[in-house]
Nucleic acid binder design. Sequence first.
DNA 1: CAGGATATATCGGCTGCCGATATATGCACA
DNA 2: TGTGCATATATCGGCAGCCGATATATCCTG
Lengths: 114, 114
Amino acid sequence: MTQAAFFVLTALADQPRHGYGILREIEELSDGEVQLRVGTLYGVLDRLTADGLIALDREEVQQGRLRRYYRLTDEGVRALGAEAQRMAAGADAARRRLAEGRHAPGPGLAGGLA
Amino acid sequence: MTQAAFFVLTALADQPRHGYGILREIEELSDGEVQLRVGTLYGVLDRLTADGLIALDREEVQQGRLRRYYRLTDEGVRALGAEAQRMAAGADAARRRLAEGRHAPGPGLAGGLA
DNA sequence: CAGGATATATCGGCTGCCGATATATGCACA
DNA sequence: TGTGCATATATCGGCAGCCGATATATCCTG
């Protein structure tokens, strides 16, 4: 799963959203760090739909503008959970191995990682 | 940072390794889940070297075969730590939002259906 | 009426992963 | 002997996917 697909699924994890709303939500939930581009979005949406991880929820017209809402499918929920599991495991592995290596300790350890 | 680059850095996080050893190490540390391909490796190695995240450590000839060892640079250590941080945060965000949504609870929650 | 936010969509370029392929050595086995 | 496999390097073409640019349209603000 690509990074872009992961963030789209994450943005849809709590409730259905439309394309532009997904863009804003990803920026917000990542604290501004991740900015999915418009040119990326629709390709990802199409691919995730084709893969059965998301589905068209409904279409609304708000203030003359079409809003096409997508939602996670059950398979999408499972896939996102599994990917989160893999990412957490990968992050842990990296940190463990960095700690094992002969590197200078990183900053901010006082008060600790728990 | 791409997935492949992340795993290469992780494989080098505890000690210098040569290309083929990186391949085996990634497979082992990921419990067989991640299999970096040979065709991917050398491009990643070149790119990481150009980016200053890894450096050539030494070259050895073992049993008539050349072994080219790479190690993390200080910048590589920092970059891997930061990436692990981002991944852990992303995984957490996905899990939190899945829990917030109106989804069936995942497996393994004591008292669950399974 | 100009500019920006909202909202959709497409396309070309570039990056990057992967399968296939090539070369070479050491070892096990028939 | 010679066949195959693991080890170890490297390159190349195809294809997938991200991004910048572009296009269209509405609503609001100044």
